[in-house]
């Protein structure tokens, strides 16, 4: 079983959901992003999702777009992301990587998988790669023992849902709303239905993302999902902070609140 799978099992045994926290690599700087992700782990985030910044992130809302732009303007390279993953993996927390497809294809799919595995990454979340187009990634992830997390959506048909989860390994990413990343005032009504539809066709743990930003929302999602995925709300802590130290403090506070939330599922 993958390291992510072990972490999900442990959380499940503790009667809680797993907390996945996302941060773009190289935001605000390479060292700054390592510090941010380390702070998140120390404050109770179970799994770190490192997003590779991309020039055209169509699944991301304004907050992650801005953070990605800052990272790219700072000159972050894909090779830097590998270094960041290695540093964060050294904290002991599993590290999953979220990436749009073109940076992987440009790096070389098999070489990317090899380098990711040797950096200690567990696998990829691929927001714009569906299994239909993923032959090369299926082969590379098999060859290098990496997890594959494809997205399922409220609009996925039953047939696509079944096909997609069949190609997943590690966990499944259920997008809670029809839309892009970004914290929202209300949690989604569509998500519980989607999670139960997915459960009907897979035993893999299911993480829910998009729109979760507070401890209370994390608790609500923890009531029906195995994992709670938070991105924009965490990124905003760093984005809005006047200094790096303030950003890390805000990040610690929110991480702890979210960690509390996943331990108090609302059922």
């Amino acid at each position: 079983m993958s390291r992510i799978g072990v972490a999900f099992d442990k959380a499940r045994a503790d009667g809680r959901a797993l907390l996945v926290g996302c941060m773009p690599a190289g935001f605000p700087t390479v060292e700054g992003s390592i510090a941010a992700m380390t702070a998140m782990v120390e404050a109770g985030v179970d799994v770190i999702e490192v997003e590779i910044p991309y020039s055209d992130p169509v699944m991301d809302g304004p907050v992650i777009q801005r953070a990605s732009d800052i990272a790219l303007a700072g000159g972050v390279r894909t090779a830097d992301t590998m270094r960041i993953i290695e540093a964060v993996a050294a904290t002991g927390a599993p590290v999953v990587t979220m990436t749009y497809w073109n940076p992987v294809e440009r790096y070389g799919v098999d070489v990317f998988a090899r380098d990711l595995a040797s950096a200690g990454g567990t696998g990829l979340i691929t927001p714009d790669l569906i299994p239909d187009e993923a032959d090369e990634w299926l082969a590379a992830s098999d060859a290098h023992g990496l997890d594959r997390t494809f997205l399922v959506s409220p609009s996925s048909t039953d047939a696509r849902l079944a096909m997609t989860v069949q190609h997943c390994r590690g966990f499944v990413y259920a997008t809670a709303v029809m839309g892009v990343t970004g914290a929202r005032a209300r949690t989604s009504d569509a998500a519980p239905t989607l999670v139960s539809r997915a459960r009907a066709v897979t035993d893999l743990p299911i993480g829910v993302g998009l729109g979760v930003g507070t401890g209370a929302q994390a608790g609500t999602v923890a009531g029906y999902a195995d994992g709670v995925i938070v991105g924009s709300a965490l990124v905003r802590c760093v984005l809005d902070a006047p200094t790096e130290a303030d950003g890390l403090a805000a990040l610690r506070t929110l991480s702890a609140e979210l960690a509390e939330g996943v331990r108090n599922p609302t059922r």
Partner: peptide
């Protein structure tokens, strides 16, 4: 599936596939 040789296809979020 919309492939013109090695080009084309669909590289989109799953949310759009139904549409």
């Amino acid at each position: 599936a919309g492939h013109f040789g090695r080009f084309g296809g669909r590289f989109v979020p799953e949310a759009l596939v139904a549409a």
